[in-house]
Amino acid sequence: MVETNTDQFLNIKNVSTAFKINGQYYDAVSNVNLEVKHDEILAIVGESGCGKSTLATTIMGLHDPEETKISGEIDFEGTDLLKLDEKGYNKVRGAKIGMIFQDPLSALNPLKRIEDQIQEVMVYHTKMTEKERHARVIELLNQVGIEDPDRTAHQFPHQLSGGMRQRIIIAIAIACKPDLIIADEPTTALDVTIQAQILDVLRDIQRENHAGIILITHDLGVVAETADRVAVMYAGQIVEQGTASQIFNEPKHPYTRSLLRSMPQRDNESDDLYVIQGMVPSLQKMPKQGDRFAPRIPWIPASAHETEPKMHDIGDNHLVRCTCYKDFYFPDQVKEGAGHESN
């Protein structure tokens, strides 16, 4: 491979994705810059509605061009994905980028056998014969930890449990050994024990194929267990980015710190949990300028925020948006604030 000398093979530059709502375009993803290297898991975290899935489907080119406006550049192994036509994109999807979706119950065609659904991706990207494809299906099912591959290959989705279906979707995503795997909440619908197994499978596959993984989740525990690097997303923007240890051990941005503090943990057993005031703004209500997180930390004076918040490298590639993190503190009246929300 040519790319092996340059580690980073996915470079997202200034990407924005806007949806058309009532004839007007609104940004769901705004000016995102990210890169992914081989052999690394990059986690994207944030509350529901922050634009994580939108970013993922933008990379996959799955948006309806008539309903969305996408700008920027997605440099993937030397080509700008955003300049590809449908035919060119189809050579990338499934072959070089595999995607895993959140809901394993609906992501498989209910009327097709598992075997056919896995083979389909190879039909379009390889010259394998039917026999070779079958062999590969069995190999893949083994790899994702399905106990009886021959039997499962012949079954239909409704005969499998949620955890098994998610494994099938992983098998499809990795069938052609893609360089990049995008996993959008791959374990949200699953039990903790199955979640742990699925994450193991993902990690093993990544080691084997030297793939890069974008792991999208809102579960900070999952991030802490698996991610090499973490990007925290809020209201369509990346607000903090760094290694897992930077994010978990020295979180800087108020949003990151707030999220971490709202998790039930061993050391806050019986106390009230920290609640972030307000909620993620809808696309139409997104603040046009200034720090988008400012309305949710109203006790921090406006002067602490930048008027046009920029990403700042605070050392070792640890990036933080806005300078407000320097003045951020948690209000002492946490307990009174809990359970009350301004509507």
């Binding site: 999807r93 595999g98 979706f101 809901d103 992501a107 498989l108 065609n109 389909e120 379009y124």
Partner: peptide, 15 residues
């Protein structure tokens, strides 16, 4: 607009 069609698209199957 179903999820399984989205899955098929992400496999690179032409529309």
């Amino acid at each position: 607009h179903s999820d399984y069609v989205r899955t098929a698209r992400s496999k690179g199957v032409p529309m």
